[in-house]
């Protein structure tokens, strides 16, 4: 894997999640940040900080990105969400257009 092909997503507590750009672009918001022609600073450094998203939620979102790619390619498994995460996860998903 090359660094240029990945993005680092940083949570409120400073936890870092390194995922492939392909996976991150499951999120329309991140896709826009990485591909808009004006160039967000995020796109150049390959880092996006989410001061409002906590690490467990951000990790769940990254898991969802990969699950979504697997699902799109025909592997039909369930995506498990712990009940205590649902509310925060929904708010984050709304923000990320995921």
């Amino acid at each position: 894997m090359k660094k240029e092909e990945t993005v680092k997503l940083i949570s409120a507590e400073g936890f870092e999640f390194v995922v492939s750009k392909e996976a991150a672009m499951v999120s329309q918001t991140i896709r826009n940040m990485l591909t808009s022609p004006g160039g967000f600073a995020e796109a150049q450094h390959g880092e996006v900080t989410f001061p409002e998203i906590t690490a467990p939620i951000l990790e769940k979102i990254c898991q969802y990105f990969y699950w979504s790619l697997q699902f799109a390619s025909g592997k039909e498994t369930e995506f498990h969400i712990e009940p205590e995460l649902t509310l925060e996860l929904m708010m984050a998903a709304n923000y990320l257009h995921t």
């Binding site: 894997m1 400073g14 999640f17 390194v18 492939s20 990254c62 790619l69 697997q70």
Partner: peptide
């Protein structure tokens, strides 16, 4: 999403693992 799999199937792997060290997690396909 849906329509892209034809192009991306080469990079798409069956699974991923989460490699962790301190505060960093690497998602590896």
């Amino acid at each position: 999403g849906g329509g892209d799999e034809g192009i991306k199937s080469e990079t798409l792997k069956a699974m991923y693992i989460r490699v962790k060290r301190n505060k960093v997690t690497y998602f590896v396909q």
